[in-house]
Every structure is written in C-alpha cells, then in structure tokens.
Amino acid sequence: MPDTRTHKIAIVCGSLRKDSVNRRIARSICSLHDRLDCSIVEIGDLPLYNPDLDEGTPPEPWARFRDAIRDVHGVLFVYPEYNRSLPGALKNAIDVGSRPYGKSVWAKKPAAIVTASPGALGGALANHALRQCCVFLDMPVMQQPEAYLGQVTDDKFGEDGLLKDGDLKKLVTTLAGGFADWIDIIRAGRDKLLSDSEQQMKNG
C-alpha cells in the first residue's frame, strides 16, 4: 500500500530577508503537496556557535532551534548563494544543530536542498557546498530531481507570495512530490528495521 502519512517538515531558509525569493520558494514547495506539513524554523537570532556556551545552559535560541529540528521527519533547506558558498547564518545554524558532539539533531533526518537565484546558475555551487556538509551530518539527501532554480524573480510570484502557474511552478511541484516520496522511502525503511529488530527480540 502507498504511504499516506503526513510528514512534519522543518524549513531552514538561509535568507533572512522576510520577502526573499527563497522564502517564497520554500512556502510554495510545501503548498504544493498535501502531505508536507511545513514550518519555517528561524535562524536569524542564533548566536554564533561557541563550544564554551554549551558547557552550562546553552543560549535559549540554540535550545529552541535544536528542539524544533529534533521533532521533525525531514528538513528542507532553501537558500541563496553567497560568494559561491553558503550564507553565514545558515552555516552557523548547521553548526549549532550539530553540537554538542554526539548529540546532533541533524543525524538521519531526510533532507532536500534547494537553491534559488535571479541569476542563471541558480546557486549550484552553494547547493553542493551543503551536500558536502550533509555527508558528515549523516543526513540522507534527496538526489533527484536536483534543484538549482535560476532566473527566479519577483514577477514569478502572485500577491499571495506563492508561485504563479508556469514552468517554475511545474518544476517546484515535481520537487515537492519527490521530497514526499523520499521521506516515504526513509521512514518505511526505518519502520522495517524496527519491526525486524522487535521480531528478533521476541524470538530470543
């Protein structure tokens, strides 16, 4: 039977600007699939990661962010390219979520990476910079369809902030469906492992 569960998704947007094209792309992705229950987890208030601050009670924004990521089924990263790499706020959020060592909230969370830009390259280099981080973070990242969204300008969006009908919306619709399917695969695989483990324990 096909998986019909709703997936709780954290959107981590690397652009802090409230009306950025990346935020609007993120909201559009989640509006196009009824099994993606999305919420944007803000990163702009996170203090720069300093291990000294984890030795006692960590800063409240860190705790809030870690709890928000820990509680989801998957993570959607949507962000622009800054100087051919990640925005600083996004890299800091990744560092905050990955520490203290051994307590990363990212581990084993299925993820999708989307970069969008008014330019032609669509943030391709920044997209792959995060993929490199995700290897170490132990996050299974959706490989296809790839999402380097170029020439994303304000006129692609309606008054509701979501994508208008057109080729870009068709592509983003495919991305949304692909991400839901990817989480289905990861969750089903883990359910099978858990079931097998429980059965082995019963069999002694």
Rank of each mutant, 00 (worst) to 15 (best):
L125P: 00
G166N: 09
R64T: 15
E60T: 12
T6E: 10
T57W: 00
Y148C: 10
L163Q: 01
L86H: 04
T4E: 13
R131C: 09
L130M: 14
L46Y: 10
L36Y: 05
A26M: 08
F157D: 03
Y82C: 03
G189D: 11
I40S: 07
T115S: 15
P2F: 04
Y49M: 13
Y82N: 12
S195M: 13
D71F: 01
N50P: 03
I94R: 03
A10D: 06
A126V: 04
F179A: 05
D191R: 14
R27E: 06
D138R: 14
T4V: 08
D45F: 02
H73S: 14
V172C: 12
A10I: 08
A116K: 09
T4L: 14
S85W: 05
Q143C: 00
D3C: 07
P118M: 10
L168V: 03
L171A: 14
F77S: 04
S15A: 14
K18Y: 00
F77V: 07
T6C: 01
L130Q: 06
A112K: 15
P47E: 08
S117L: 09
E42M: 03
G74V: 07
T173H: 14
D3R: 14
K18L: 08
L193C: 01
D138S: 12
A116C: 09
V41H: 06
S195F: 11
L171W: 05
N203D: 15
L90A: 11
G123Q: 09
E159H: 06
F136S: 07
P58W: 04
L16I: 15
L175I: 14
D160R: 03
L16G: 07
I69F: 03
S31E: 14
A126R: 04
K192H: 11
S20F: 11
F65E: 04
V41T: 12
M142D: 04
G166D: 07
E198S: 12
H33L: 04
A26V: 06
L137K: 01
G119L: 09
L175D: 04
I9C: 07
K8E: 13
A180T: 08
L175C: 07
I9A: 11
I11M: 13
G158Y: 08
Q199C: 00
Q132K: 13
G102A: 11
A111Q: 12
N22P: 13
Y101H: 12
A116P: 02
D191M: 12
A68I: 02
D154E: 15
D52E: 15
P80C: 14
Q132V: 15
I183W: 04
I186D: 10
R5Y: 02
W62P: 00
D160P: 01
Q199W: 06
P118W: 10
I29H: 10
H7V: 00
A120K: 09
E159L: 09
W182E: 05
G119K: 04
D67C: 01
R131L: 13
G166P: 12
V12G: 00
F179L: 02
M139T: 14
V12N: 01
T115R: 10
L16K: 02
L90G: 08
R131P: 13
Y79S: 05
P61Y: 02
A89Y: 01
G166Y: 08
L48Q: 12
